[in-house]
Design a protein around this nucleic acid. Sequence first.
DNA 1: GCGTACTATCGAAACGCTTCGATAGTTGAA
DNA 2: TTCAACTATCGAAGCGTTTCGATAGTACGC
Lengths: 342, 342
Amino acid sequence: MKGRPTIKDVARKAGLSLSTVSLVLNKRQNVSDETRRKVLEVINELGYHPQRSARGLASSLSGNIGFVLTDDHFTQAEPFYTKIFLGTEFEARKHNYYVLLTTVARTVRETDEIPRFLLEQNVDGVIIAGRIGLSWIEYIRRLKLPLVLIDYDVSRYHLSSVVMDNRGGAQLVVDHLHSGGHTKIGFVGGDLDHPSIAERYSSFRETMQSRGLSVNDAWVQVDESDTRTDNGYSAMQKILSSTDRPTAIFAVNDAMAIGSIQCLKESGLRVPYDMAVVGFDNIEAGLYVEPRLTTINVHREQMGELALRRIMEMITHQTNIVTKTLAPVELVVRESCGIKTD
Amino acid sequence: MKGRPTIKDVARKAGLSLSTVSLVLNKRQNVSDETRRKVLEVINELGYHPQRSARGLASSLSGNIGFVLTDDHFTQAEPFYTKIFLGTEFEARKHNYYVLLTTVARTVRETDEIPRFLLEQNVDGVIIAGRIGLSWIEYIRRLKLPLVLIDYDVSRYHLSSVVMDNRGGAQLVVDHLHSGGHTKIGFVGGDLDHPSIAERYSSFRETMQSRGLSVNDAWVQVDESDTRTDNGYSAMQKILSSTDRPTAIFAVNDAMAIGSIQCLKESGLRVPYDMAVVGFDNIEAGLYVEPRLTTINVHREQMGELALRRIMEMITHQTNIVTKTLAPVELVVRESCGIKTD
DNA sequence: GCGTACTATCGAAACGCTTCGATAGTTGAA
DNA sequence: TTCAACTATCGAAGCGTTTCGATAGTACGC
């Protein structure tokens, strides 16, 4: 026999028709147990595996999911999106799907920059991770392809998304600091246009209020245009220039927290004794600052996994139900908050 | 007209046969310029794109390349392999190929861990990046699929590979230190089983010799079992315990270089004044140590790109010529070597 | 002006699977 | 005992390409 076995070979050897074998392959009902057994046995003997493109042609399902990332997101040192992708890929295996990863520029510019998997109808759904230009989202919606966003959301569109529980995380931070005796809690942030950042900030304020803690505006710096380390540094400088200082700082992410700590140290203040600092995101660098950073962690792989599941539901049930999935977060207590848990 | 246009629609509208359109699509000769023009015009008007699975079925080429990575490699903080992948993906677009990325455990364990793209004949070639278990390599060879390794090589197999110019890099380091007046140069390494590490080490020795510099064995520590930061630290400790000390250290990679610097600092020695240190790899962390690390850089994206080209050659020319491709490296001079260039 | 050698185009088969409608075979209610 | 309602299986069509062999049409040497 030349080449690998085909469904025909299986059918012949099992003494059944092509279609029956196909039914077994696709786990359809209306196949007797006896037949199913026989077919599976032959498949095993022959080492048969259905060929992808043939399936695709016949079923008009490609068996692929497109995973879109902006290039800057993909190559940053912190493997945040890498891990999300991994979660997606791993879950995809269970559904016998492939994930086609591609990076794009932030906004759609030219036709030839459009991922080919869209042009060639080579995906059954698309996952976009991270903040991305609206033009991309619009483009994909127009194709009527199932779409799920990860770690991003656009309220004005009605889209399914998987985001971490930013509000819950902010609440955890405030409560933790509060439980450690802090009542004067400041906030370091920026780039409020980003939905996640905005959520953390508003949840911070709400939680403070609901706990009966007042927020002094001098303790809050959210005017930075970005949320990098240096922004954290300069935001902290402003807070320190005020006479009435907070005793603890909630930084909207770890990068800013690290910048804040740097600033505090250079100002001769000790963390956490003179000021406690808590971050958000649990990036690796948080392990290497002195003191090590207390922060909020999210299971990245899980986010990718959840998104894949949503996509699969949309594909198999042809449903258009919009789901917002919150990935749970957890508090990681290290030394920068100065609070011991037992 | 329902759905997207097919080659049939193009043929009809152009007043030509299916096969002629196909010839144009595949850039074959024996098509008159006039006809070609016409077909391309219609394709453009209709916004036609050939459908992947149909092509795959008919041509028995999947249009995919498999990219295999061990999971630990993929998720490490330094986006080394991520960037290599990006280079591959980007180059693949030019060839109208997709890259299927999958991670595997270091060694083949069970059948169901074998990437499906191998089982389903869904790739025309495979790229493996980084050190990987031999069982994987053997498995893929048995499938007679074109295979290219990146950043790894196995001398006992006759395989194509793309590796950075480790020997050239080591030479650059030695010559740079030498040009800065150093003659007593030590070496910090480990895990000599790894081909890249071994190459750097042997090239270090060869270059030293050819430059007439002698190597004191007390300055060389290569017994560490791994090449991480802490290994660099302890290797350096051993070197410092000797009475006759080198004035410069070549660390086999940046991680070890950083560990070495840490150790030197804690021993009260100043880098580069009391001892110069040069690394290899140009990882991001090298920018954040004090002093910033002088090192060897390689263009990661280029490595991925080169590998894809090799694979494409193997696929299109059906050749089995084994090629070893050296990706060029460059010296990145920062402060840890204490040598100024002008 | 004829035969040869190309060149440009075409028709039809083939790729390996899914799926729809048809067909026996079986069950069970009337 | 008959007939309706299933159930298990099958045959054939179809998915959108590529490719191979056939066929006109053109050019050219003699």
